[in-house]
């Protein structure tokens, strides 16, 4: 196909790009939802993703609950933790400058990661794939689990997008994002809606963590490593644009994968190069249209 590049390598990297992109999309979407409604830059998103993976690991190893059960339980547990964080950390400072919530969630990262590291060490724990094996497509080998992750993340991302852009509940969220006091004057409990939205965004991070557990090591720092890229994705896609976050997530994953094929040295840099150009050319983000939460 291309000189010196085997199709196996090419498609292999595109697949890895799509896998990474699935996580980029899910996590940056959660960040965008939270930022859109609360103007909170949720630095703890990576730690909450890590908690999702650890809850899945704990469910399996302490309670014998397998992956498929964890897929439902862990996001609820992590979401409930998010609710707790919103009430105890974010709500008391909601009227202060955005910088405070950023710092508070960053402090939460240090505490959460520190506690998990204390308990489980920093080397990481294994989590076996619930879908071993795969299929040989002729030009490449496709592991079932990775196929599942890509398809499931697409369903979650676009399901969430439709929920927010095309339902009554989503209309409340978009309206509360514009004029919260007017939405409240219609008789809607806006503070509770904000709490639940934060919990939902945090639950999405937890879900990402469960999906990641069989692919990456379940380790205390798995979230922090990812968050640097996630913030770049959010900046490129447009802060608070849900569709922008989703599309940019997959796009960046694939671009990163392709860079590994054609210029491996640049793979770690390419995202930030794109971010710089995006900031120069479209500072509000590639997808900063008029849609939805912004």
């Amino acid at each position: 196909m291309f000189d010196g590049v085997s199709t196996q390598l090419l498609f292999g990297q595109v697949l890895i790009g799509l896998i990474n992109g699935s996580f980029y999309a899910m996590l940056s979407m959660g960040l965008a939802i939270i930022f859109g409604l609360m103007s909170v830059v949720n630095f703890a998103h990576g730690a909450q993703y890590m908690l999702g993976a650890f809850v899945a690991w704990a469910l399996l190893n302490y309670l014998g609950i397998p992956y498929w059960g964890a897929l439902f339980i862990a996001p609820v547990v992590v979401g409930a933790f998010g609710l707790f964080m919103e009430r105890t950390i974010l709500r008391p400072i909601q009227n202060l400058d955005h910088l405070y919530s950023l710092l508070a969630t960053f402090a939460a990262v240090l505490i959460i990661e520190g506690l998990v590291r204390q308990q489980y060490g920093s080397t990481g724990l294994p989590y076996n794939s619930p879908l071993p094996g795969g299929v040989n497509l002729g030009f490449m080998f496709m592991p079932w689990y990775r196929l599942w992750v890509v398809l499931f993340s697409i369903v979650i991302c676009f399901g969430t997008y439709i929920l927010i852009e095309h339902t009554k509940l989503g209309a409340y969220l978009r309206a509360a994002n514009e004029k919260p006091e007017i939405v409240e004057s219609f008789g809607i409990n806006v503070p509770r809606m904000i709490s639940l939205t934060y919990a939902f965004g945090v639950g999405l991070a937890g879900l990402g963590g469960v999906l990641a557990a069989p692919i990456y090591q379940v380790s205390p720092s798995m979230g922090s490593n990812l968050m640097i890229v996630i913030f770049a994705v959010v900046v490129i896609g447009g802060m608070g644009s849900i569709l922008g976050a989703i599309l940019t997530g997959y796009l960046i994953g694939v671009v990163e994968g392709l860079t590994k094929v054609f210029y491996p040295e640049g793979a770690n840099l390419v995202i930030f190069v794109i971010m710089i150009f995006a900031l120069i050319l479209r500072p509000n983000g590639l997808f900063s249209g008029k849609e939805g939460l912004k």
Partner: peptide, 11 residues
């Protein structure tokens, strides 16, 4: 709260 006032019947 505002939402309770709305629910009391004031628009």
């Amino acid at each position: 709260r505002t939402y309770q006032i709305a629910r009391a019947g004031i628009a």
